[in-house]
Every structure is written in structure tokens, then in C-alpha cells.
């Protein structure tokens, strides 16, 4: 699945990743590449919207914390990080991987960072989906003794 991820796809994956998992995988790439901040990490909110009746007119549901940053590597690649929560290290790691995915090391980063993150996310989601499936009600039809 990670073979198919385009840029929007990997940015979402990086945002949803556990910050600790991402940090460990980025550390596995060796030295952190030198980078300049275009926008140092900052925390703010976004207003999350819903739709009336699930499908109708939009309304403001409430806010969510987000941390964002942008950086440039020595080779000129620009990486953006926009991640839920207030973890500046998470946003930086996401931006670093985003930048690296646009350069010569993209194949290596895909294998060493994106693939394990997809696997971890899939495992996490499946574990919950299997628990939910076990709580699905199976109805039994009571046969009435009329015959």
C-alpha cells in the first residue's frame, strides 16, 4: 500500500503516526539532515466542521490542536509538517520525511519509514476492528411451535 502513496497520502500517514514510532524510524535513517526552518514549529487550532444530518449543510463542530512547520534541506527540497496535537518534534519529523521523500533518498525513506508506519497503522486499526466485529449481534429467529 505504501508503494502507492502520493505526497498527500504520506503527509496524512505521517500526521496520523504515533510520534514515538515516527521518531524511532527517523532516527533509523542515520544523522538528521541539516535543514533551515522556513516556518519553525508552531501550535494552533483548526476548526473541525461537520454536516447537518451527516450529509447536509456544514457547521462548526469544535476545534482541534495542530502543530505545523516547514523546512528546507541542503539540496533545496522543502518539507511541510501538519500534525494533530502539540508535539513539535512530531511536526519536525513529518516535515523532514516529506522533504526526503522528494529527493534522492525517497526509495530508502519509503522502505524504512513509510512502510513500517503503514504496517503499524493497519495493525492498530485491525485490532480494534476485530474487537468491534466480535460485538456484532447475531439474531436468532425463534421458531414458534405452530406445526
Amino acid at each position: 500500500m505504501s508503494e502507492e502513496l502520493g505526497r498527500a497520502g504520506w503527509m496524512g500517514l505521517l500526521a496520523r503516526a504515533r510520534a514515538g514510532d515516527l521518531a524511532r524510524l527517523v532516527a533509523g535513517l542515520g544523522d538528521v539532515p541539516a535543514h533551515d526552518w522556513l516556518r519553525p514549529p508552531e501550535t494552533g487550532t483548526v476548526m473541525v466542521r461537520g454536516r447537518a444530518g451527516g450529509t447536509g449543510a456544514p457547521f462548526n463542530l469544535g476545534e482541534m490542536t495542530v502543530t505545523r512547520c516547514a523546512l528546507r534541506l541542503a539540496d533545496g527540497a522543502v518539507g511541510h509538517g501538519h500534525v494533530q496535537g502539540r508535539d513539535k518534534g512530531h511536526a519536525r519529523d513529518a516535515a523532514l520525511v516529506d522533504a526526503l521523500m522528494q529527493g534522492m533518498r525517497a526509495g530508502e525513506v519509503r522502505t524504512k519509514v513509510l512502510c513500517p508506519l503503514v504496517a503499524a497503522e493497519t495493525a492498530r486499526r485491525m485490532a480494534r476492528a476485530r474487537r468491534a466485529a466480535a460485538t456484532k449481534v447475531e439474531f436468532f429467529t425463534m421458531v414458534r411451535g405452530e406445526e
Partner: peptide, 13 residues
């Protein structure tokens, strides 16, 4: 906190 913007409406489907 500064507000960065508003999201797409979530798709509960």
C-alpha cells in the same frame, strides 16, 4: 492559540 483555518466537513459515512 492561533487558528490556522477550517477543515473540510468530516465524512461520517
Amino acid at each position: 492559540l492561533p487558528r490556522f483555518g477550517a477543515t473540510q466537513p468530516v465524512d461520517t459515512g
